[in-house]
């Protein structure tokens, strides 16, 4: 195969550059990060030559999310988006409005456990009206109907899976868009953007299809459905920076009250706040740049047993 001449030229030029990258200020003034001593990363001259406003990190994330949403809309006949009312979900919905020029051309599904915080219900009802959303509210079956071998919090969370399965069956959706991210949790880190689910909704993580070059697996046998993950490649701090830049509305529980705030929102019986003084978007972003506490620390179902979350997800949890 012929080598990319331009890339090779750039590389040989960089080979020279890197020798000059002596000790310097890091790009982030983060005190806790380990200093490897090789200094700041040089910007390529090629990036400076181009005309127009350059794309920053958030633009790149947003553009890929829009691309994925447009692929899903083009390829999937019966498509819906799960709207959990959380920060990630709202970023995803915002990107959908960008992708489709102010419209949301598919219904939203809100899985209602009946155990959410009142602030979340207020938020939902307000934005359904304000944004003129087509939102289906799906009620969850009682916990007694869930697999009794699951640990208590996981068993409670399994109600959402059951409600989701019922909605899929009743509405005949062949694709659902979900706002999970790779950096949240280990099994999500292994997800595909277009992830197939069997008729029983199960995730066959042992044999996932290949997915590369933004060519997604969009063809599946009848009876199966697709989970589409348009913000899989974002991190928690990306979500906050983008929320700030775009001024996307949020449930107020994320901001500190009396020294505590929620980093991740779930059912009120199995979700706990973390210690935090961060009461503005800027303070949250600063806090996240320093913290070593995992995002889902306050989500009890992740921590009851080594594989409790894996079991939930294999069974069809988001």
């Amino acid at each position: 195969m012929s080598a990319l001449p331009a890339a090779m030229a750039a590389l040989s030029m960089l080979g020279r550059l890197r020798r000059f990258g002596g000790a310097g200020e890091g790009l982030h003034g983060r005190t806790k990060a380990f200093d490897t001593g090789s200094g700041a990363v040089k910007k390529l001259p090629g990036q400076l030559l181009a005309s127009g406003v350059s794309m920053d990190h958030l633009d790149v994330l947003e553009s890929r999310t829009i691309y994925i949403l447009r692929e899903a809309f083009n390829k999937i006949d019966k498509l819906a988006m799960l709207w959990s009312l959380g920060k990630d979900s709202n970023v995803m919905l915002w990107c959908a409005k960008k992708a489709f020029f102010g419209h949301v051309p598919f219904p939203l599904v809100n899985i209602d456990t009946g155990m959410k915080f009142p602030e979340m219900y207020e938020f939902r009802d307000r934005y359904i009206k304000e944004w003129n959303l087509d939102c289906l509210i799906a009620q969850c079956p009682p916990v007694e109907e869930m697999d009794p071998t699951l640990p208590p919090a996981a068993r409670s969370a399994a109600r959402k899976t059951a409600a989701l399965k019922r909605v899929l069956r009743e509405q005949g959706y062949t694709g659902v868009i979900a706002g999970i991210r790779r950096d949240e949790e280990g099994t999500r880190a292994k997800e595909r953007v277009f992830s197939p689910r069997s008729e029983q909704n199960t995730w066959n993580f042992r044999d996932q299809p290949p997915e590369f070059w933004d060519q997604f697996n969009t063809d599946f046998p009848p009876g199966t459905h697709l989970r589409v993950h348009p913000i899989l490649h974002w991190t928690e701090i990306d979500i906050w920076r983008y929320t700030k830049r775009e001024a996307i509305p949020l449930v107020p529980l994320y901001f500190s009250r009396n020294g505590k705030r929620y980093r991740s929102l779930g059912d009120k019986n199995i979700t706990f706040p973390v210690d935090s003084q961060a009461s503005t978007l800027d303070e949250i972003i600063s806090e996240l740049m320093e913290t070593k506490i995992a995002e889902r620390t306050g989500r009890a179902m992740d921590h009851e047993a080594e594989d409790s979350f894996e079991r939930l997800r294999a069974d069809g949890y988001m």
Partner: peptide, 14 residues
């Protein structure tokens, strides 16, 4: 390792 995993980290440089 069965499937590919993504994980974020940083040095002072980036």
């Amino acid at each position: 390792t069965i499937d590919v995993s993504h994980i974020h980290f940083r040095t002072n440089a980036r």
